[in-house]
């Protein structure tokens, strides 16, 4: 048999030969709605946490779609959506110098300070 098959996708065997294109094509379809990132508060007392993304024509539809897609089993009590294009992120590489200064400031951590053993409640 030919060798260009894989089951890596988790749902069964599919071909992987050179005839199967993988890279995003430069002329992407413009039909699609804007991409929204979705954040869900799992329960009262917790922060909203990023859970994924979806496409929707506007903010209100994005909330409805997020409800159906990400909370089918009581996964949350509150949803935030925000257009992906509106997110400003720190940097492409999370290891860049932006986070270096916090490594230098060990005095911001309680363990920096030596307190005698016999001092209670500290």
């Amino acid at each position: 048999m030919s060798t260009d098959l894989t089951a890596e996708g988790g749902h069964g065997a599919v071909p992987t030969g050179p005839e199967v294109p993988t890279a995003p094509s430069p002329s992407v379809s413009r039909r699609d709605w804007p991409l929204y990132e979705v954040f869900v508060r799992g329960k009262r007392g917790l922060n909203h946490v990023h859970v994924g993304s979806l496409h929707a024509p506007d903010d209100e539809m994005a909330v409805h779609a997020a409800r159906d897609l990400y909370t089918r089993r009581n996964e949350g009590v509150s949803i935030w959506v925000v257009k992906a294009a509106d997110i400003t992120a720190s940097s492409p590489d999370e290891k860049d110098p932006m986070f270096a200064p916090s490594g230098d400031k060990v005095y911001r951590h309680p363990t920096f300070y030596e307190i005698p053993e016999n001092v209670p409640h500290m």
Partner: peptide, 30 residues
């Protein structure tokens, strides 16, 4: 949808992937 969402974080475009499926340029499980 979860998986298309993950593919988009790699720079793929969702509508484009759907087109590729329909045009039989990408496959699915046998």
């Amino acid at each position: 949808m979860y998986l298309y969402s993950a593919a988009e974080t790699l720079g793929a475009d969702r509508a484009d992937l759907t087109d590729k499926l329909i045009e039989r340029r990408q496959k699915y499980s046998s």
